[in-house]
Design a protein around this nucleic acid. Structure first.
Lengths: 209, 209
DNA sequence: TCGTGTGAAGACGTTCACAGCT
DNA sequence: AGCTGTGAACGTCTTCACACGA
């Protein structure tokens, strides 16, 4: 639908910029130059400016950017204006861990429910969100208009679980299982493969001088 | 040192291929074609073949690749021939979660110890690896020749912790804190930013048709 | 004939360098 | 004068297409 395709990496960086802008705002800064913001985000100034042009013009030549304006503009561009409900599918070790880790909430997401094949085993683990049986996923997604899911089930059942999510209307899956998920084009999958990241590190450790 | 630079992404894919090869091996397959293996890994055949050429020639024209030979060749290329010791730095919710989650061990890594500012609070959490105070990190790294660390401390102290790791000789850091780590060129940092991944998904969910 | 290995072409993303606003 | 916005140049990675060996 877009005339000019926006690089996927640019979207990642936009989130990063937003985080930096929030920090600047907390520190009382009102304006910031592309080079200052880029420095904070670990990118080159030209890249930051280019990334922003994909969404519009936000700066004032000779001056820089208004911290709050740019932050809000990026928030809008990312579609993060209202709180997004997220569900956790699979509440084993990793799933429960992520539920306890509140990193998501800090950035404006609310994990509203968790699902597991054996919910009874999870309840006792001191989590604050309700835990339901796997069979209730579809109903819950439909009733609560959930579009984002975090998938933490074992690799063997990941595809099956993903099918269920997609069928119920989920449009984005954050996949922690080491499985290549097959989903329709309209659904986005972001894979976080922890073992792969470690293996990758291992290569650079062995081959660095 | 290399004449031809190997794309960082190719290294990631190599780990992926290796995982697929292990699965094929379990299923009793002895040979595999580039298109079959590429399909399993979710890439195009030409890309797989190109990736392999960075490290040598492993196939037989007209036939394909020997599953075990290719697997071993990739393992060697990745420097994964012997078990790598890894330490966990920061044993809060996320750190403990990752310790419980045995995904790393499955791929041949051994988490040998964990470190936390308040180790006493962690011991009770039913983890099998020893937990030491943060002050012992340097000694441990030196004595055990540790080169890989998983960093799960809060963002505010991440840089400080990283400095300590690097100073003691760590060469690769898997960083889960939402902080841009400043390290020497010889050290590799892989960032896993969970909130960023969710935000990224959010964009595609809002903008998909 | 089949499937690998690979130079060449193409697509994509980044960086430069400067025009143009304030 | 200062800093953004951006076309053009550059570099990197991916894909093509075909030569070559089994």
């Amino acid at each position: 639908m877009d005339k000019v395709e926006i690089p996927k990496k640019a979207i990642y960086r936009l989130s990063l910029y937003q985080r930096c802008l929030s920090k600047l705002h907390e520190n009382g800064k009102e304006t910031v130059s592309s080079s200052a913001l880029a420095g904070a985000a670990g990118v080159k100034p030209a890249q930051l400016r280019k990334d922003l042009t994909y969404f519009g013009q936000f700066g004032t030549r000779g001056l820089g950017y208004s911290v709050t304006e740019l932050r809000d503009a990026i928030r809008e561009a990312l579609g993060r204006e209202q709180l997004q409900p997220v569900i956790m599918v699979g509440a084993g070790n990793l799933g429960v861990a992520l539920l306890r880790y509140r990193g998501f909430e800090k950035e404006g997401f609310e994990v509203v429910a968790a699902f597991d094949a054996v919910p009874e085993a999870v309840v006792s683990r001191g989590i604050s969100v309700p835990v339901y049986g796997q069979g209730e996923v579809t109903r819950f997604i439909r009733e609560n208009d959930v579009r984002l899911a975090i998938l933490c089930v074992p690799g063997g059942v990941a595809q099956e679980a993903a099918n269920e999510l997609v069928g119920a209307g989920v449009q984005g899956i954050l996949n922690f299982s080491p499985t290549l998920l097959q989903v329709p084009d309209a659904v986005t999958v972001n894979n976080v493969d922890l073992a792969l990241e470690l293996e990758n590190l291992s290569y650079f450790v062995s081959h660095g001088e």
